[in-house]
Nucleic acid binder design. Structure first.
Length: 420
RNA sequence: GCCCAGGUAGUCUAGUGGUAGGGCGACGGUCUCGAAAACCGUUUCUCCUUUGGGGAUCGCAGGUUCGAAUCCUGCCCUGGGCGCCA
């Protein structure tokens, strides 16, 4: 959330941000109208309340002296109904204002390039070289089915389209990757946490998933949402708190759940886009002046996984038209997927500045008073997509798949996955 | 799910209808060569306001009242007991 005062005083800056994000600026106009009306009511209400406080004190004094206070009490009764009326207006205007404020996206950083869509995302760096195949590389779903480690039909049977069962070495590979990633990140200085994945509405609002993206979330009958990413529970750990000892670095493995509304027809085969997937997440709480430096480090910490797995990837800087709602700046890590001959997103590392901290009320103390922290997060990494990258990049002509060396200790020393 | 006890500022705690008080911690001052102790003072947040202030705030949301931390209703959370249970 932006600061109301900031929007009021800088409608042009906010408007430009909306335009760069391919949005209209009508929101700001109605916001300013409600804001003016709200402040007018506030002024009148505050005056009346001041009067009430003064007279109430006089009444208390009169009663103490055993004098008659009936006339003053009468006077107050009239004022009170007016106060109630004004309070109703104030409440209405404020909730309208809040509604709009919650739906205004973050202002992109100056280092976020202005652009229309994903075609305008500049490549920051390319690491590793795609392998030259002496045969035609198969897509991961073929490899997975032939090795009997991915079962799409049974996933659909027990859940539905977009769910997959991992079996044997496939299940083990998924688990090995989770442990490997958490071990690397804890070594990098992140504290491992294992949070709930059922989340209440307040926390979902705190990180920016609600109210705008409700349709992308799974909602349980008793009001809980399934976490679409560990970002939600982990960032909200400090909701309504003062954070001591900044910076704080956390890493978490969770299952993630996304309805992928409006994404039908994309990546329908394989496990690139699933309704349930595993992800290891990195989250940082930092002081504002260090957040961009910390973002570079966080991105490198996520990249480390790809480097250790020897997977070719590149880093792109999302432009204003492609960046997420809450983010001021985002680097996407894209891993090479041989069968598609494309780089595909495997991690998204973002600086939210104080956008989430203001929503979730996460602050730290300074001699000048409380200040909002800056929050950052990034996938380190999406586990299912890492499986995709390993199966495809490490596949052999005979259909077996070599296991990357760093993973072997996590898989009982196995060096390959072969059909059994 | 039921019963009981709780939720007051960074933290602990007092407060049963009339301006949220005290302890600790922290910070500032006096004193001192310096420090400790002692003493004095400051220490909720947020919003509005032309800088004088004002308004809200005692888990959250309503209600009663001239006036609510205090009374009423609903909800959330914590602890304890009972029930159920992987």
């Amino acid at each position: 959330m932006l600061e109301l005062k900031f929007v009021r005083n800088n409608p042009d800056i906010v408007g430009r941000a909306l335009i760069n994000r391919n949005m209209g600026t009508e929101l700001i106009d109605s916001l300013l109208e409600y804001d003016a009306a709200w402040r007018e009511c506030l002024a009148e209400g505050d005056n009346l309340k001041h009067k009430r406080n003064v007279v109430t004190r006089e009444i208390a004094q009169l009663k103490k002296e055993n004098k008659d206070a009936a006339s003053k009490i009468n006077e107050m009764q009239g004022i009170n109904s007016r106060i109630k009326e004004i309070d109703d207006n104030i409440r209405n205007y404020k909730s309208k204002i809040n509604e709009i404020m919650l739906s205004i996206p973050n202002i992109p950083s100056e280092t976020t390039p202005v652009g229309k869509d994903e075609n305008d995302n500049p490549v920051v760096r390319v690491v590793g070289k795609p392998r030259e195949f002496t045969f035609t590389p198969k897509p991961h779903w073929e490899i997975g089915e032939e090795l009997n480690i991915l079962d799409f039909e049974r996933g659909s049977k027990i859940a539905g389209q977009g769910f997959t069962v991992y079996k044997g070495m496939g299940a083990k590979l998924e688990r090995a990757l989770i442990n490997f990633m958490l071990d690397v990140h804890t070594r990098q200085g992140y504290l491992e946490v294992f949070p709930p994945v059922l989340i209440n509405e307040k926390a979902m609002t705190g990180t920016g998933q609600l109210p705008k993206f409700k349709d992308d979330m799974y909602l349980c009958t008793d009001g809980y949402y399934l976490a679409p990413t560990a970002e939600v529970p982990v960032t909200n750990l400090f909701m309504d708190e003062y954070v001591e000892n900044l910076p704080v670095f956390l890493t978490a493995y969770t299952a993630c759940f996304r309805r992928e509304a409006g994404k039908h027809g994309q990546d329908t085969r394989g496990i690139i886009r699933q309704h349930q997937f595993n992800k290891v997440e990195l989250v940082k709480f930092v002081k504002p002046e260090t957040s961009y430096e910390e973002m570079e480090k966080l991105t490198l910490d996520a990249e480390e996984i790809l480097k250790l797995l020897k997977l070719p990837y590149r880093v792109i800087n999302l432009c204003t038209g492609d960046i997420g709602f809450s983010a001021a700046k985002t680097y996407d890590l894209e891993v090479w997927v041989p069968a598609q001959k494309k780089y595909r997103e495997i991690s998204s590392c973002s600086n939210f500045e104080n956008f989430q901290a203001r929503r979730a009320n996460i602050r730290f103390r300074t001699p000048e008073g409380p200040q909002f922290v800056h929050t950052l997060n990034g996938s380190g990494l999406a586990v299912g997509r890492t499986v995709v990258a390993i199966l495809e990049n490490y596949q052999r002509e005979d259909g077996s798949v070599e296991i990357p060396e760093v993973l072997r200790p996590y898989m009982g020393g196995a060096e390959e996955i072969r059909k059994v």
